[in-house]
Amino acid sequence: MKTKITLLVLAVVTILASCQHSASADSSKIKKGIIKVTILYPNSEGKTFDMDYYSNKHMPMVANLLGDSLKLLSIDKGIAGRAPEEPIPYLAIGYLYFDKLSDYQNSFGPNAEKIVGDIPNYTNIQPVVQISEVFQ
């Protein structure tokens, strides 16, 4: 029995480790004062989102285009609403982290057309973007 439990724990740890994005592996880079760009994809009737394309093609392309100014990225996949009967409020949320607002502006601006132009390849949702300074 102990062997089965040990193997199960090892399998879960291996699966979780393999699911992490390399850019999101170092959460120690998230500190007070860092800039966080949050890209929200609201859910509603008729909305679609291809998480495979987003996580394996779009976000790696974004990371490549933004270069060294991008310090970290992560992706959330919506799985449930607040209560069991409530729908998922967001199908996905992407996060991009930068040291300074100007780092985001200077790296995104020249690549905006290519990044925004790729959106129809994975969703029919108009994303909502929030730029924040991490406070705590």
Rank of each mutant, 00 (worst) to 15 (best):
R82H: 07
D103P: 02
N121S: 13
Y122L: 09
I93K: 13
Y90M: 13
N111F: 02
K47P: 05
Y97H: 07
F49N: 04
I115S: 00
I93Q: 09
P60S: 07
T38R: 08
M1K: 06
K32H: 08
A83T: 12
V37E: 01
N56T: 15
V116H: 06
S107M: 05
F108T: 00
N64P: 00
K32A: 14
E113D: 15
I5G: 00
I125F: 08
Y97W: 14
I5N: 04
I15H: 06
E85C: 03
K29N: 05
A17C: 14
I115G: 00
A23E: 09
A112I: 05
N111L: 02
L8C: 08
E133D: 03
Y95T: 05
I5C: 03
V134A: 08
D118C: 08
K4C: 04
V13N: 03
A25N: 13
E133I: 13
S55L: 07
Y97F: 13
S69A: 12
N56S: 15
H21P: 00
I93L: 05
L70T: 01
V128A: 11
G109H: 01
N43Q: 11
K4H: 11
V37Y: 01
L70G: 00
S107D: 02
V134S: 04
T38I: 08
D99P: 01
R82Y: 11
D50T: 10
S132Q: 10
P120Y: 07
Y53L: 04
T123G: 04
I131R: 06
Q130A: 12
V62P: 00
M59Q: 06
S102Y: 01
I88P: 01
Q130S: 09
K4L: 15
P42C: 05
S69P: 00
S24L: 01
Q136N: 12
